[in-house]
Amino acid sequence: MAEHTASEHPKSPLTTYFSVWIALLFGTGLTYYAAKLDLGVFNAAVALIIATTKALLVALFFMHLKGAHEKLLKLVVISTIFFLFILLVLSMVDYGTRTWS
């Protein structure tokens, strides 16, 4: 977790918190709006990119992943995502190459 001994607060994190909050609200509006556009196959991609950006903002700033002393927390996050991808990708190896369905 981020350092939080009261004495050594470098500067107030409030600006970060509020900017992230604005960015998240903006992102929500953007997803909503982008979904109304016809981007063909890219609709889903755009939606996922925006969602991932928002998730990253929450994780990095609200959950303090960014300031974390420990690489360990990042390792947990990265390896979880890695295994989630294994689940999705290797399933798709089957679903994507079936000749009968």
């Binding site: 295994f83 294994i86 290797l90 190896v93 089957d94 679903y95 190459t97 079936r98 000749t99």
Partner: peptide, 17 residues
């Protein structure tokens, strides 16, 4: 975590998988 579908070889998964 990479090998689970070896339980499904004859269950009808794609031959490539």
């Amino acid at each position: 975590f990479l090998v689970w579908a070896h339980h499904m070889f004859v269950a009808g998964i794609s031959i490539y998988a």
